[in-house]
Design a protein around this nucleic acid. Structure first.
Length: 529
RNA sequence: GGGCCUAUAGCUCAACUGGCAGAGCACCGGACUCUUAAUCCGUAGGUUGUAGGUUCGAUUCCUACUGGGCCCA
């Protein structure tokens, strides 16, 4: 084998096995193997054929099948062998096991191999199969003496060799390091992981259908933006060499989507990645998936209803019921959701009066008696509300709850309430102690928008690096006129967490952001692990 | 950034108060024609995360570092 300059090391015993197999005419990575049936299809087709006569007749009618999958289990008994092949199928076929207990079949199919059926040479090479190998088998359907549906093999082939020691199948792989760094291992070892990501796909598909059914257009807007905007968050910076310009990975698609409403698309949505240069935690990943949607001729109230409709139907459809078990919490997603004004919620939780909540001095005094060591106090009412809300209200919001009545100071893109100009027509949806969605009637007055951007720029100059930039082209777009519009963002990863019951965001992102494996002194180059 | 916990074979885990580094599974060799976490016999597998310290002796006690987990900010 070619010298790999220490870039990768194969196990010599495995390489020897590859050679040995090749010399005896068994290629380790052959091509052109056709699979005709998925394990789940076979279980579904034969689930009602249990007795010998019925089974024989059904198998006769079915004829030859070819299956393929990863060898997860093997019993070898001299001149006969059982192989269990795991494929992409899902365990969806209701059946009963030997003891009459209900089970779900699918995802794997057993293969029965006899030496006298496939010949001595072929049988000898089958004995060389290892757990973890991909295996292909062709034959007819049968049931074993104990009733397990199996492929009675006429031919068995190694389809792809596994060169690495296979994880212990008694104890599922539980090391969170392995599970998230080497997601492929997690996927082929753990059915719950496969189920989580199938559910994620279903959730996204449901949302897409939901909006398409309401005449929304799915669009894609820039991931790389010359001016980052649409959310209060620190962006990642990158550089375009040919144009010699810095670009920011987007923290939100908002300002581009609203430009499309100005352009007349009226109803648009995007499901895509956002990037925020912030800490990593069980509910934060630097890149995460966001649904944003905008609808002209709609207001915040329309979105409240749409959100309730979407989430309650989505939960019922994917989870099969209207409540979700999330860690210790039980979450009720039946509409309508609770609603609470931000200031009332804070007043109730802190004991401060509504008058005191209008006075930054009073809130600062309240805070100083409880958290005297904390630096960097907010300077305006909205900043204090945000801080008090996070500390006193958010930890108690379990069931889905719309928080309304946000102040404009912390809502630079939201329309002011006509009835209460010191508040915005904005809501955030909270659930399981965190924010799940954020929506509002959009600010479409370009003059007001320009002033709010200017205020953000002043805050940035005063040291707040999460403040927004002045996006002149966005103000220009609004100046052409944007119809009254409402828009909303929903965090897809968090939604998937709630529905699948995974309490860490890393469990619902296939390849979460992780610190690289640190090189050790004896091994300066960690290699492609 | 702070606190607590943690790192032992490819995987999952043991090793009493500091006294010979172990088991099951996987791998390698062998037996077995309906098994189901098959069974039986045998072999091999380790710088106990890294670097120091205490000690006659350290997986075990101490310090620092690195990775990971949980909680707080």
């Amino acid at each position: 084998m070619a010298d790999l300059d220490g870039l990768f090391e194969f196990d010599p015993a495995s390489l020897a096995k590859v050679d040995r197999l090749g010399q005896s005419g068994v290629p380790c990575w052959p091509n052109g193997l056709l699979v005709t049936h998925l394990s789940t299809e076979l279980h579904a087709a034969f689930v009602h054929h249990r007795d010998d006569a019925g089974m024989a007749a059904a198998a006769e009618g079915f004829g030859q099948v070819a299956v393929g999958g990863r060898l997860m289990f093997r019993n070898h008994m001299g001149k006969a062998m059982f192989l269990r092949l795991q494929d992409r199928g899902e365990a969806t076929v209701d059946d009963v096991d030997r003891d009459g207990k209900g089970v779900r079949r699918g995802g794997a199919i057993q293969v029965y191999v006899r030496r006298e059926d496939i010949g001595e040479t072929a049988f000898e090479s089958i004995k060389q199969l290892d757990i973890g190998d991909f295996v292909w088998a062709a034959g007819t359907m049968m049931r074993t003496r104990t009733g397990e549906l199996s492929v009675h093999a006429r031919e068995v082939r190694l389809a792809a060799k596994c060169l690495l020691p296979f994880p212990d199948r008694w104890n599922s792989v539980s090391d969170i390091q392995v599970r998230s760094r080497q997601r492929y291992i997690d996927l082929f070892m753990n059915e719950e992981t496969r189920a989580t990501f199938r559910a994620r796909s279903r959730i996204v598909r449901y949302i897409r259908n939901f909006f398409e059914a309401r005449d929304y257009l799915e669009v894609e807007t820039p991931m790389m933006q010359p001016i980052p905007g649409g959310a209060a968050a620190r962006p990642f910076v990158t550089h375009h060499n040919a144009l010699d310009m810095d670009l920011f990975l987007r923290v939100a698609p908002e300002l581009y989507l609203k430009r499309l409403v100005v352009g007349g698309l009226e109803r648009v949505f995007e499901i895509n990645r956002n990037f925020r240069n912030e800490g990593v935690s069980v509910k934060h990943n630097p890149e995460f998936t966001m649904l944003e949607f905008y609808q002209a001729w709609a207001s915040m109230e329309d979105l409240v209803g749409l959100t309730e409709e979407l989430l309650s139907a989505l939960v019922s459809s994917v989870a099969g019921r209207s409540t979700l078990q999330f860690g210790e919490l039980e979450l009720d997603f039946s509409a309508p959701f609770a609603r609470l004004d931000m200031d009332e919620a804070i007043a109730r939780a802190t004991g401060l009066t509504l008058t005191e909540l209008g006075d930054p001095e009073a809130m600062a005094a309240f805070w100083a008696t409880r958290f005297p060591t904390e630096p960097r106090m907010p300077t305006h009412r909205g900043g204090w509300w945000e801080r008090l809300f996070e500390r006193y209200v958010e930890p108690n919001l379990i069931n889905p709850t719309f928080i309304t009545g946000f102040p404009p100071e912390i809502s630079p893109l939201a329309r002011r309430s006509d009835a209460r100009p010191d508040r915005c027509e904005r809501f955030e949806l909270y659930c399981a102690r965190w924010e799940l969605a954020n929506g509002f009637s959009e600010l479409n007055d370009p003059i007001d928008q320009a002033e709010r951007f200017a205020a953000q720029v002043r805050a940035r100059e005063a040291g707040d690096d999460e403040s927004m930039y002045f996006d002149a082209d966005y103000v220009r777009a609004l100046s052409y006129g944007m119809p009254p519009t409402a828009g909303e963002g929903i965090g897809i990863d968090r939604l998937v967490m709630l529905i699948t019951g995974r309490t860490s965001i890393r469990e619902v992102i296939l390849f979460p952001t992780l610190r690289p494996v640190a090189p050790t002194p004896s091994e300066p180059d960690p290699g492609p692990r």
